[in-house]
């Protein structure tokens, strides 16, 4: 039996990775987040390139472990990881599916204008920034002036 016959396709692997949740925002997958940059076979080893969101984000190493665990559960034995820093991660890489899930979850998705268009809870457009920094490096802290609820905004970088 040749090795290639037993190798899952790269499309299949992308599907599997799309089921791996982000450890801090479990409603979106690591693929939705846009941090998985490349999946490719090199002989019998699978090469996975991951780009960190923020350089000090403690979730990065957890994400690598989660990806490895998921792939091993699907029977892939040899995996090589590359932490790729260039080009730098940008919120432009978030999938549309991911952006919609963020909003449903109560996190306003990133906007080029630099702030949320509306409150993810009551949809009011009267929103105010509390702080450029939030509960994780990738988020800022905002508040709705109508429903008065605080909410997270996914920073645009």
């Amino acid at each position: 039996m040749s090795i290639s016959n037993s190798q899952p396709s790269e499309t299949q692997i992308w599907e599997w990775l799309d089921a791996v949740p982000d450890p801090e925002i479990p409603v979106i997958s690591v693929v939705d987040l846009g941090i998985v940059r490349q999946v490719s076979w090199k002989d019998d080893a699978l090469h996975v390139a991951v780009t960190p969101t923020y350089s000090g984000c403690p979730a990065t190493s957890i994400i690598e472990i989660d990806i490895e665990t998921a792939l091993r559960d699907h029977g892939i034995e040899k995996i090589t990881f590359e932490r790729r820093i260039a080009p730098a991660w940008t919120t432009d890489w978030l999938t549309d599916k991911g952006r919609a899930k963020l909003e449903d979850y109560g996190i306003a998705p990133p906007q080029a204008a630099g702030g949320p268009t509306h409150c993810p809870q009551c949809k009011s457009t009267r929103v105010t920034k509390v702080s450029q920094f939030g509960s994780t490096p990738c988020k800022a802290h905002w508040r709705c002036e109508d429903c008065l609820e605080p909410f997270d905004y996914f920073k645009c970088i």
Binding site: Y54, S55, G56, C57, P58, S131, F133, G134, P137, H141
Partner: peptide, 20 residues
């Protein structure tokens, strides 16, 4: 609290950059 979070986030970024 907001300033505490902001300072901790800033520190985290700086330590991440240090690793590189």
């Amino acid at each position: 609290l907001e300033e505490d979070i902001a300072l901790a986030n800033t520190a985290l970024d700086l330590i991440g950059q240090t690793q590189m």
